[in-house]
Computed example of a mutant assay.
Amino acid sequence: MDSAAEAEDMRFRVSPLTSGGRSAVLLTSDGIPIEAEHLSGAGGGRDLAIVVAHGFTGALERPAVRRAAAVLRAGGGVLTFSFRGHGRSGGRSTVGDREVLDLDAAVGWARRLGYAKVAAVGFSMGASVVLRHAGADADAGLSRVDAVVSVSSPARWYYRGTAPMRRLHWVVTRPTGRLVSRVGLGTRVHGGDWDPVPRSPVESVPYIAPTPLLIVHGDRDGYFPLDHPYSLAAAAGEGGADLWIEPGFGHAENAADEALLGRIGEWLTARVGAR
Rank of each mutant, 00 (worst) to 15 (best):
R156T: 15
R132H: 00
L101V: 03
Y115H: 11
G265T: 13
H133K: 04
A241M: 06
G96H: 00
P196R: 04
S23V: 03
Y158I: 03
V129I: 13
V149E: 02
E6P: 02
R166H: 06
V145A: 10
W157R: 14
R112Y: 07
G237L: 11
Y159R: 03
V149G: 05
E61H: 09
L17T: 15
S82P: 08
A147G: 15
V14R: 12
G161S: 11
P33I: 00
S93F: 05
V145S: 03
P206C: 11
A233C: 08
G126C: 06
A255R: 00
G43M: 09
P225K: 10
A59L: 05
I215A: 03
L213V: 10
G96E: 03
S23L: 05
V172P: 06
G114H: 14
I34D: 01
L39N: 11
G58I: 06
R263S: 05
D221I: 07
L260I: 00
R263Y: 01
H228N: 00
H133R: 02
E37H: 13
D227P: 02
G20R: 12
P225F: 06
Y158F: 15
V180L: 14
R111C: 05
S82G: 11
G75M: 05
G21I: 10
G273H: 12
P210W: 11
V149L: 07
L213E: 12
A105R: 05
F56H: 05
A42L: 15
G122M: 04
V95W: 07
R188V: 15
H190W: 14
V272I: 13
D2W: 06
P154H: 04
L168V: 11
L27R: 14
I50M: 05
